[in-house]
């Protein structure tokens, strides 16, 4: 069996989903959250972070390309799996799932699609958006801080949209992390699992952290 055929097996496909997911999580989501948190410490710090980021264009582009690849693999494989799974579990009429099957697990495809929609909206909002300029320590740079403020201030619907989608992120991550680890072969027990707990704490923690920024921006 070549690597390629291995990757086409069910476990191989699961590994692809897990790996692409983890790549996005580690290389994008975690740094992104770190950066966002700076927003809470005022315009100078936040804009300086954005400025530095812009200096690293090649790295950023590299990561962006990697993200594009990951998200494509992640989604394409996940969609394939979901479709195949729907077929494999056909015709169930009276079936009930057990109490143990979490909402997060059940809603993985839904939360996944929601996150995708959110990403597009988020890119439109911030990446492909005309940005104002400001001067920081005498250097002219984009006023990202002001941009964030302006996107949320006095726009409760927008705020709700962002916070709402962060729930999808929380749901998705809380199952995704433990599931990826189990796929890699780390034993995640059914009951009383620390990994399950950590997965939920990290997932919801990150979602909440992300959600705080629009809330703060809205209040300011």
């Amino acid at each position: 069996m070549s690597i390629k055929t291995t990757l086409m097996t069910s476990i191989g496909q699961k590994l692809l989903v897990a790996t692409s997911g983890l790549v996005m999580f580690l290389l994008f989501l975690v740094p992104h959250m770190g950066g966002n948190v700076l927003f809470l410490f005022g315009p100078d710090l936040f804009n300086s972070y954005a400025h530095h980021l812009h200096q690293l264009v090649p790295v950023v582009i590299g990561i962006e390309l990697l993200m594009l690849a990951s998200i494509s693999v992640h989604m394409a494989t996940a969609v394939r799996l979901v479709l195949k799974n729907r077929q494999a579990a056909d015709h169930r009429l009276s079936q009930k799932s057990s109490a143990e099957r979490s909402l997060a697990a059940k809603l993985m495809p839904v939360s996944g699609v929601m996150i995708f929609i959110f990403i597009i909206k988020h890119l439109l909002d911030f990446k492909f958006y005309e940005k104002a300029k400001t001067t920081l320590h005498g250097i002219e740079t984009y006023d990202v801080y002001a941009m964030v403020l302006s996107r949320f201030q006095s726009d409760p619907i927008h705020l709700l949209f962002y916070v709402g989608f962060m729930i999808a992120v929380g749901l998705h991550l809380s199952h995704a992390l433990q599931s990826a680890l189990q796929t890699y072969g780390l034993y995640v027990p059914r009951e009383g699992s620390k990994i399950k707990l950590a997965s939920a704490v990290i997932g919801w923690g990150m979602a909440a952290t992300f959600a705080i920024i629009p809330v703060v921006a809205f209040i300011k």
Binding site: S10, I11, Q13, K14, L81, K84, N85, Q87, A88, A89, S97, S98, E100, R101, S102, A105, K106, M108, H175, Q178, S179, Q182, T183, V188, R190
Partner: peptide, 10 residues
């Protein structure tokens, strides 16, 4: 034609 595990533990 068996499906793929999504670690739901049912």
């Amino acid at each position: 034609g068996f499906g793929n595990c999504s670690n739901e533990y049912e």
